[in-house]
Design a protein around this nucleic acid. Structure first.
Lengths: 155, 155
DNA sequence: TCGCCTAGTTTGTTTTTCCAACTCACTCGG
DNA sequence: CCGAGTGAGTTGGAAAAACAAACTAGGCGA
């Protein structure tokens, strides 16, 4: 039997196990902005250099970043997002949106311009009906025997 | 003058400062699922009890959770999401989507059913044009003097 | 009264973080 | 050729968190 103390199987937990450590998502932010060099990351994120080195190794290992040479001759590297890393941009964008709304309501520290010409205000919608998702519109169905949920809800 | 070592001002960083610590988003997941009692949280998340107690205090302080009595007479409490907490569901949903795609591609550990009758597959779109956001469709404009970005990008 | 439940708190140990300083390979100016 | 500078990290030691297990405290129910 599965030891009674295992946590709930969950893709959110699985994802956070890869990119949920302190600074990891900020690394991804900078790398998506095009600032993939070690010293840029140190400055722009404000993380200790050793921690950053550890995070970068991990992010490369799990496949969201890759390390590429931008110069031979002094051999120098930079980090870039892989396709899987770019797939995390929606997470960054939704985190940004929440912070813009709840923490910096007067003026966002960064504006994203969408190719359509407008300032990006992201919405998370159901791909089937296109409606914006709302808590009460969701019902959760755990797929693992032994696990239930209490109310209607997300996650 | 602002000490030259401050990190980039950023709503993503601000948001993660509130809910980015280990277990915080998992607490929110459980609470959104309706499992707001302390011992449920311990079991479903697998966090040490003292850490969980610390996180819960913090999440209440920053206003994403509230502690309410579900019974007088044995006085007992449970945690519930505030409106600001529910606003974080898009973050949970996008994290889940990434994990379902990249880590559990054969079968998600949890299925969310949308009120429209379909299994929820969330998309992050531009509220203006409705197009799904793609990295190359974004241009970042920092609003703080002294900060730039390198390439076109997100965050 | 004994034992059990919920909701934590305490204690002592193991990991991480953090910071500053240091390394190493290479280039450039004089 | 020498010394300074840059990029990309390592290293060492102190401080802070995380961890696991045991313990507390109020109320119940039998």
């Amino acid at each position: 039997m599965p030891a009674a103390k295992d946590p709930r199987p969950c893709s959110i937990a699985d994802t956070l196990a890869l990119v949920g450590e302190k600074y990891s998502l900020l690394v991804l932010r900078e790398v998506c902005l095009g600032n993939g060099r070690f010293d840029q990351l140190v400055r722009n994120i404000g993380a200790p250099r050793d921690v950053l080195a550890t995070r970068l190794k991990r992010l490369v290992d799990v496949g969201v970043l890759e390390k590429t040479a931008y110069s031979e001759k002094p051999l120098r590297h930079e980090y870039r997002p892989t396709p899987a890393g770019l797939d995390l941009e929606p997470v960054l964008v939704t985190l940004k949106e929440w912070g813009d709304r709840h923490l910096n309501p007067e003026s966002p520290p960064m504006v994203l311009e969408h190719v359509c010409g407008h300032e990006l205000v992201p919405r998370v919608v159901c791909s089937e009906c296109g409606d914006e998702i709302r808590h009460d519109d969701l019902t959760a169905h755990p797929q693992t025997p032994g696990w239930t949920v209490a109310g209607p809800a997300v996650a």
